[in-house]
Design a protein around this nucleic acid. Structure first.
Lengths: 203, 203
DNA sequence: ATTATTTTTGACCATCCGGTTAAACTATAT
DNA sequence: ATATAGTTTAACCGGATGGTCAAAAATAAT
């Protein structure tokens, strides 16, 4: 009975997300996505003409999540250190909900760097405003002189890496203990912002 | 004339490294590796029985580079901050020479996390010694109290991320300007160690 | 020079995989 | 009730791909 069924398109997108994110574009099989969605393979091609089209739908959705909403947070009226805390916390929260997105995005972007140029051409980033905010704080004397570019990259690096590099870190540093690693990830919400604030705070 | 030829095995490994690191296991084609090595495809299977075997040779080599020799540096007799400077500098140097290794390793580890368990079982890591060194510095009062696990992950994250996330960072923050990005990467050798030392230094 | 061994090659094979097609099934409109 | 449009399926296709094989070419051993 159709009414009870989840919208087929949604079923396909969910299945495709699972498979693409786990296996990457090259490793994913249309048949596997069909199986995961419990539908006929031809139906995939009925809804999404081909593998590329289906992939694009998944990718662009994941990519939005991957780029933190750094602008909104930075332009608010809070104290600079609170902005950092907020940014780190909300970004790590998002990564906790979508832990496999980082490697997926990083790998696929690398496989096809052209894609990023397309994304940018559709009006993507405006880092200048953020640079400005950071430079203002330097002039105000809240923080020591740092190149804004490095600060931004550092913040994102510290948030993302434990998710992108999870198997390695968990293996080498945590003797593959899953629970300990979960605890570690939770700790980072405060640990990372403290680390950053310490690194740039003027005394 | 054979004497003039580079050892065939070496030719294959070089070609395989290029192709695997660029395309990943699933994206790489045995024919493409053969072409890159300018040999017949059957010869690949003569030297390395199958794709997996060939891949393993490449992977394990790349993996060694991916894990920084953090132990050696940390156990030397230098000042702790000099150890950090040295570690960061040598690791970033390595990454500059092998900029594509991070995404390759991160993606492939994720595709097959089982592999990391095998690696560990062959006697891989001993982080306890490093934890000890860091804890000693905390007791000595060189640095503020930090959990060693977080510090180690932070150091590696700050080094690796600009390479793993290059296309995104270069695109969004540097308007795809290659030269500016190169400059940025060079700056990080000092920028990252300063950032870390500031974050943990006791005043 | 002849034989044995190793290296290299072209041709080939079975399977996998993205994609198509025509027909069946379902729901809606008239 | 019947035509129309939308949805789903089984069967199929052609090209790509990992891998094999037997024979040729090169090298080493006698």
């Amino acid at each position: 009975m159709k009414v009870l069924d989840k919208n087929t398109e949604k079923k396909i997108l969910d299945a495709a997300k699972t498979v693409f994110i786990k296996k990457g574009f090259d490793g994913a099989r249309m048949q596997e996505i069909a199986d995961e969605a419990i539908i006929n393979k031809a139906l995939l091609h009925y809804y999404f003409r081909n593998k590329d089209k289906l992939f694009d739908a998944i990718f662009s959705d994941a990519f939005v999540k991957f780029i933190p909403k750094i602008g909104e947070t930075m332009l608010s009226q809070k104290h600079f250190f609170d902005k950092i805390k907020l940014l780190v916390e909300s970004y790590i929260d998002m990564l906790t909900r979508n832990p496999h997105i980082p490697i997926f995005i990083l790998h696929e972007i690398n496989r096809n760097p052209q894609r990023i140029i397309q994304i940018l051409s559709k009006g993507g980033a405006n880092p200048e405003m953020i640079f400005k905010v950071i430079n203002t704080e330097i002039k105000k004397g809240t923080i020591i002189p740092v190149k804004p570019q490095h600060l931004i990259v550092n913040i994102i690096a510290l948030c993302i890496f434990p998710y992108a590099g999870r198997p390695v870190i968990q293996g080498f540093i945590f003797k593959n203990n899953n629970k300990t690693y979960q605890k570690f990830l939770k700790e980072r919400k405060t640990e990372v912002s403290n680390f950053i604030i310490n690194a740039i705070k003027k005394k």
